[in-house]
């Protein structure tokens, strides 16, 4: 089993987290069983931890960590997460400051929806919000999760969030290990396009479904995060990622890296004044 050292991010930014994720998983072959060494990092963050949780779950890889990071990983139920409302409630009773990694199972139907509801409500609660925050919190989570079950061809999605009270921002990550954007366009529409072209199509609202009324979910989620909440947004599939903020859009190539599926991560600062997402709805 090859050992991979998880790189410590240069700083707290979402981009630094993306770079750390890239450094960790680059050169790994699809499905390769790895041993992740987390001893070099002093903090675990959603954009790294959730994809690793999904990767370990699928490949049965191993990990090692120590000190505060290990305590934190225990608190958030890394790597297996929880997949029921009762386990979620038990988790937050034991560790009030940490929301556990939630594994959403398609076949669980309304139980899955209740778990997702509980997760979203907890996220809203920790933001201690001003009016309108609930919609801005719920919109991206619901749309990005429903995409997993509509498009990924996987029956399992992962979601995790952490609020940082001293820094006053919330990080959320949603991930799957499905077929990813480019393969979805290929299989559904016969389009032979690269990962970066597929991300651009997603952001332009090109749905793989015939209806012209669809394809808004990811685009509007990004707009809510960046334009309404003044946050940052990363969406990654295969060997490309889009890094967005209110005034910048960067399409990033990730050589020697390929994530089987989709990862979305975003950061939203704690809102200080009332929010209204209604004019972004389409």
């Amino acid at each position: 089993m090859r050992k991979v050292i998880v790189a410590k991010p240069q700083n707290n930014s979402l981009v630094a987290q993306l770079v750390s994720l890239y450094s960790t998983l680059k050169n790994s072959r699809g499905g390769e069983v790895l041993e992740f060494d987390l001893s070099k990092i002093d903090w675990a963050f959603p954009l790294l931890i959730l994809p690793l949780s999904a990767y370990i779950s699928v490949t049965k890889s191993a990990y090692q960590a120590d000190g505060n990071v290990q305590s934190y990983l225990n608190a958030i139920k890394f790597p297996d997460g929880i997949n029921s409302v009762s386990a979620f409630q038990k988790g937050i009773q034991l560790q009030k400051n940490y929301i556990p990694i939630s594994v959403l199972l398609k076949d669980k139907g309304s139980d899955r929806e209740r778990l997702e509801s509980l997760f979203s409500s907890m996220i809203h609660e920790v933001l201690d919000s001003v009016p309108g925050t609930s919609n801005a919190v719920y919109y991206p989570i619901t749309e990005l999760v429903t995409n997993i079950f509509e498009h990924s061809k996987q029956k399992r999605g992962y979601i995790f969030g952490q609020f940082y009270p001293k820094k006053n921002y919330l990080d959320i990550c949603i991930a799957d290990q499905g077929r990813g954007f480019a393969t979805t366009y290929k299989q559904e529409l016969g389009l032979d396009i690269s990962d970066s072209e597929a991300i651009v199509k997603v952001m332009k609202g090109k749905s793989t479904k015939p209806s012209k009324e669809r394809g808004y979910g990811v685009r509007t989620s990004k707009r809510v995060v960046c334009e309404v909440m003044n946050g940052e947004f990363v969406i990654l599939s295969g060997s490309s990622a889009l890094v967005s903020a209110k005034t910048s859009e960067r399409l990033v190539s990730l050589p020697s890296f390929s994530w089987q599926g989709v990862i979305v991560a975003y950061r939203i600062p704690k809102p200080e004044k009332a929010i209204d997402i209604s004019r972004y709805l389409e």
Binding site: L18, V200, K204, L242, E249
Partner: peptide, 16 residues
């Protein structure tokens, strides 16, 4: 209306 979306292209090392 077609949605315009033209992000700047960059590689991960330049981003880092």
């Amino acid at each position: 209306k077609e949605i315009e979306f033209e992000p700047k292209k960059i590689d991960i090392n330049s981003l880092a």
